[in-house]
């Protein structure tokens, strides 16, 4: 077993384990911290795939900014195990069903794609490097890219409008 494989299995275990801990921890703040660990594990996977840019952007954007906002909300609302009301039984049931449906759809969609049949591309891919990614984004996918940036802009404007409301 090479070091790359060792790292892969370690990161996989870390990602899955901490993802489970996100769900199972009682304290919402702990959940968020576990989620951050998950992001780190995923970034590790990106690095194994030679996608350093994606790895670091994942850390900056998700672990560094979005999770901080999550923490803000949770810390300010002072949620803790005793404060959360018990959900109704049928609500839990519905949650499990809908989550399971999503999982089913995802696996069904990915099962027969080419990528799944391939061996995992370790240290060969170069799409995650900043130069290649930039070229692809601004040449092949320039329209979707710009549309998504307009979406972000409108989200920002919306936030400002809500914030300005008397």
């Amino acid at each position: 077993m090479s070091i790359t494989q060792l790292l892969f299995w370690f990161l996989t275990a870390l990602a899955l384990g901490s993802a489970l801990m996100v769900i199972f921890s009682k304290n919402p703040v702990h959940s968020i911290l576990w989620l951050i660990t998950t992001f780190f594990a995923i970034s590790g996977h990106y690095i194994l795939l030679n996608a350093q840019f994606l790895a670091i952007v994942n850390i900056i954007v998700y672990a560094g900014a979005i999770m901080v906002l999550f923490l803000f909300v949770v810390m300010l609302m002072n949620l803790n195990a005793s404060a959360t009301p018990l959900k109704k039984k049928w609500l839990r049931f519905a949650g499990v069903i809908s989550g399971g449906c999503l999982l089913l759809v995802l696996t069904a969609a990915l099962k027969d794609t080419d990528i799944m049949r391939q061996e995992l591309m370790m240290k060969t891919g170069d799409i995650g490097l900043i130069h290649n990614l930039g070229t692809v984004l601004f040449k092949e996918y320039v329209l979707p890219f710009e549309i998504s940036s307009v979406l972000f802009l409108s989200a920002m404007v919306g936030a400002v409008v809500i914030g300005k409301k008397e």
Binding site: V29, L33, I36, Q52, F53, I56, V57, I59, I60, A63, G64, A65, V68, L71, M75, L129, I130
Partner: peptide
């Protein structure tokens, strides 16, 4: 010498917030 150099700095700096927040909370 990593090819994302300065972005790494930003990544680590954005992690620095957690020391503060976790400690404060």
């Amino acid at each position: 010498d990593i090819n994302i150099g300065i972005l790494y700095v930003f990544g680590v700096v954005s992690m620095g917030v957690y020391g503060m927040m976790i400690g404060g909370w």
